[in-house]
Amino acid sequence: MILRKVIYTLAFLLLLSPAYLLFAKLKTPEKNFLGIWKEAAWEYKEADRFLLHQLADKQNRIATANEEGVRIHTGETWNFKKNGVLLLTKHDDTIKTMRWSLKGRGNVLEITDGEVTEHYDISTVEQDKIELNYLSDMHIKESAKLIFEKT
């Protein structure tokens, strides 16, 4: 009888432990993004470069029709702000104000300007480095990687 009670208590505590970890000890992934990040590189296989640019060109043209799509970011600085605002700047000029949010279990980054919505799988988040894999319906994940460095 006592043994059964101990087993039930342990099982209950084991089930509750992830909740304790989450609320008491761990930092939400959103906090890891806050701050200014500079694009360091786009890495993609040569075969996918053409594919990605074609997709970007096509979808940027139809962005006004409220289609979801992709934009090629080059040498921009991304400022992730607390209230979900993302400022893209280039040579100290703000070129776009967007919204950012994390999806799933904090493993997908969504950025949108209201017309084009982009999704990135977060493969690395470190103190001074973020690696994002572009997600599309065309399964070029792992082939188009956007790398940021903390400024």
Binding site: L15, P18, A19, L21, L22, K25, L26, K27, T28, P29, R105, G106, N107
Partner: peptide
Amino acid sequence: ELIKGNLYQFAVVAIWISSFF
């Protein structure tokens, strides 16, 4: 997620599984 050291994601997924349970 546990192997990768992403404890936050590990905890979130564990809670999701627990809620199904």
